[in-house]
Write a protein that binds this DNA or RNA. Sequence first.
DNA 1: CGTAAGATGAAG
DNA 2: TTCATCTTACGG
Length: 188
Amino acid sequence: MIRGKMQPDLSDALVAARSLLGWKLVHDTPKGRTAGYIVETEAYDMHDPASHSFGGPRPRNSPMYQEAGTIYVYLIYGIHYCVNIVTGAKDQGQAVLIRALEPIEGTKLMKQRRAVAKDHELTNGPAKLVQALGITPKLNGHRLGHTLRLEPGKPVPAITQTTRVGISKAVDHPWRFYITDSPYVSRP
DNA sequence: CGTAAGATGAAG
DNA sequence: TTCATCTTACGG
């Protein structure tokens, strides 16, 4: 019987950023379950000036120096939260930012959490998907597990690799990946 | 200490 | 294009 891998390859940030595309990100809360296929990612590591882990471990980035599968949630612009999955060996300071999902479960709950009508605007940005899934900074530093977890998803027809969004350093590194032609990726 | 910038999003 | 909003980093 043919089946996909039961876990994505989290051995390295660049490998994982590709590998995570198509995986299903699931979050269970008292309000219910929300889930979506990962359609857009970015890789970061400690040698990358654009990375929060650049310059070595500090209080804020310490989850990035934990083992692969650790969850890193950070506050940006004083308003929004974004979620990363830590990759690589412990102390390598790597993570993959989840930038967009294709909503597949709990869209009604997502719409309660986000005041938008269209499905494709629910999770097409790193802070939007965090809001739609109800991910909170309480998960920061925890491992993927029962509350927030990955499940095997769907095959990925084609991947586009390009430069990352919203950074001012290392702007030329092509460390952003998305499912080619997906209508659910973040703003171009 | 003071201050500037930040892996963003929504509105005008 | 602007602004919301606040933590962290870094210079004096």
